[in-house]
Simulated scan of single mutants.
Amino acid sequence: MKCLMVFLMLVMLMALATALLATPTEEEVFIDGDDEDAQTDNFDASLLESEEVLPASLRGTGRFLAQTPRVTMTCNKYPRVCRAKGSPGPDCCKKKCVNVKTDRLNCGMCGKKCKYSEICCKGACVNPLSNKKHCGGCNIKCKKGSSCVYGMCSYA
């Protein structure tokens, strides 16, 4: 029984020692090289003391909250955003840049949706499976005398 008590006391002391050693008491700044080298590189050690030192641990604070919020420019306030290089389209519909000549959800004008089997070609909803002027895709015309069936000219 005495041996068990000594063992528990030893475990408690080791746990206490590791807890005390693991918690830092203050932040230390290490400078590589000698003090003479630091002076020759125009290093000002007083700057380290005057600046506020942030904790190295992120525990308790999230990095997400530390980020600055992004500012997004929507086309309803800035219509020129849609004309910029890399924009999905020159037109603004519901705060998004779109091309009303090719967008299925805004075909020809904002809010005009094409049916499931239709695509938007030149601002008009067409069925590429049966339309002679847009057979299989936009601006694919079938030759005279042939028909568009299943999106192919002169099928069978």
Score class of each variant (00 low, 15 high):
residue 90 P to N: 12
residue 92 C to F: 10
residue 119 I to A: 02
residue 111 G to E: 07
residue 96 K to H: 13
residue 114 C to F: 06
residue 126 V to Y: 03
residue 85 K to D: 11
residue 103 D to P: 01
residue 118 E to G: 02
residue 123 G to W: 09
residue 134 H to E: 07
residue 131 N to W: 03
residue 104 R to C: 04
residue 103 D to G: 01
residue 93 C to K: 04
residue 90 P to W: 05
residue 117 S to E: 15
residue 86 G to D: 10
residue 122 K to F: 00
residue 77 K to N: 13
residue 131 N to Y: 00
residue 96 K to W: 07
residue 98 V to T: 09
residue 86 G to Q: 05
residue 81 V to D: 06
residue 85 K to W: 12
residue 102 T to Y: 03
residue 97 C to T: 09
residue 83 R to M: 11
residue 123 G to T: 10
residue 88 P to D: 06
residue 76 N to I: 00
residue 136 G to P: 00
residue 89 G to A: 08
residue 133 K to Q: 11
residue 98 V to H: 06
residue 104 R to F: 01
residue 97 C to V: 10
residue 87 S to H: 01
residue 128 P to E: 05
residue 112 K to T: 09
residue 103 D to I: 03
residue 133 K to D: 11
residue 121 C to R: 05
residue 107 C to I: 05
residue 117 S to I: 15
residue 132 K to W: 07
residue 131 N to R: 04
residue 105 L to I: 05
residue 99 N to H: 09
residue 108 G to A: 02
residue 108 G to V: 05
residue 107 C to M: 03
residue 136 G to N: 04
residue 111 G to N: 09
residue 78 Y to Q: 13
residue 99 N to A: 11
residue 95 K to G: 12
residue 92 C to W: 06
residue 120 C to L: 04
residue 115 K to Y: 10
residue 125 C to E: 02
residue 110 C to S: 04
residue 115 K to T: 13
residue 116 Y to T: 15
residue 93 C to A: 04
residue 133 K to Y: 06
residue 109 M to Y: 11
residue 91 D to V: 10
residue 83 R to L: 14
residue 115 K to V: 09
residue 132 K to V: 08
residue 107 C to L: 03
residue 117 S to H: 15
residue 126 V to H: 00
residue 132 K to P: 14
residue 109 M to N: 13
residue 77 K to Q: 15
residue 118 E to S: 10
residue 86 G to L: 07
residue 112 K to G: 04
residue 80 R to P: 07
residue 105 L to T: 13
residue 101 K to T: 12
residue 94 K to F: 11
residue 100 V to P: 03
residue 91 D to M: 09
residue 110 C to L: 07
residue 104 R to I: 04
residue 111 G to W: 02
